[in-house]
Design a protein around this nucleic acid. Structure first.
Lengths: 186, 186
DNA sequence: GTCTATAATATGATAGAC
DNA sequence: GTCTATCATATTATAGAC
């Protein structure tokens, strides 16, 4: 039977994510992925028989699990604003204050197989729907909550684009600072 | 002496841009660039002796010229709000209502040569500073104007990330709809 | 589970015919 | 200015030793 995920595996996924994050799907060569992980190319194929596509999907599955941790306050805090603020802090840390690229931006470029693109969309949907649910619970209409959540997602992702271009996480940080008011509609 | 830019050249740049836009720098192979333009790889090297990096820079130079047209109302309309609204309309059309990727997002991924990355940042700076200037002329402080302009840039670029993931330009469209109020501080 | 070796193909780039 | 032909290297992927 399959071995459960270990810390060792998660470290491997994080090394792979680093390459996919910064170079996109097609830009992430097997050589770069091997160098980043310290494994030889043939060893990567042992872990991921379907090659790069399977690696990308494993990375997205890992990111989805990480996001569940980031979103935990948003999902469970009895005080909506407090939950939003705490999740925003975790997201800011996760993205290095706005200076790291996001796989949800760079992985679904043309060249990525359709399953990879769908999986990336699913991870983004987890993030967005968690924000929309929180806004709903705080009293907003489902339509307003969904729009606000999408807008928060977009301003955060765009903040990361700005961070990559200019090495300045200001817009990303301000997007997260606006997250409570945007979701709560205040 | 050098031949001035022609419509023919601009069409070539647009075909190249299409590939860089959707696949990033490393993902844009010479084969894909040749197929998109209808030229053979050797013919591309005749036009761009320095290869892919020179093509990417030519594409960014073309985008910068296109942006000057998009930004013209913002720069010249005596009524600030009217100028912002008209530029927002042009930007929306330029990005296919939020369903097209942006070279400023996809081109500066890791793997792109430093001159390409710098040129992309310069084009983004043209856009942002034009918005900041307009906000300034409308009476906002330079600091507020700059922050607002960066935030508009980020929410628009993030809207395009959302569009690529979900095929939904809603966040992009809303970002441009907020552009007047965000820049004018109303 | 990781490695070396290998093979087929793709890629970036150049030379030279037309 | 575009093409065919070519080349060195990189890339994806597999086979098999340890």
């Amino acid at each position: 039977m399959a071995r459960p995920p270990t810390v060792h595996d998660d470290e491997l996924y994080d090394r792979l994510a680093e390459v996919f994050r910064t170079t996109g799907y097609e830009g992430a060569s097997l050589g770069a992925l091997a160098e980043s992980t310290g494994l030889k190319r043939a060893s990567l194929y042992h872990r991921f028989p379907d090659g790069k596509a399977q690696m990308a999907e494993a990375v997205l599955a890992r990111v989805e699990r990480l996001f569940e941790d980031l979103l935990e306050p948003l999902r469970t805090d009895p005080d909506p604003r407090s939950g939003i603020v705490r999740t925003a802090e975790r997201i800011s840390e996760f993205y290095g204050g706005g200076l790291l690229s996001c796989v949800l931006d760079t992985l679904p470029l043309s060249g990525a197989p359709e399953p990879v693109r769908r999986r990336a969309a699913r991870v983004a949907e987890v993030w967005i729907s968690a924000m929309a649910d929180a806004a709903c619970r705080a009293g907003r209409s489902p339509e307003d909550a969904r729009e606000a959540a999408e807008d928060v997602f977009a301003s955060a992702e765009g903040g990361l684009v700005h961070g990559r271009l200019f090495g300045d996480g200001g817009p990303f940080t301000r997007a997260l600072a606006r997250m409570p008011d945007l979701l709560l509609g205040t």
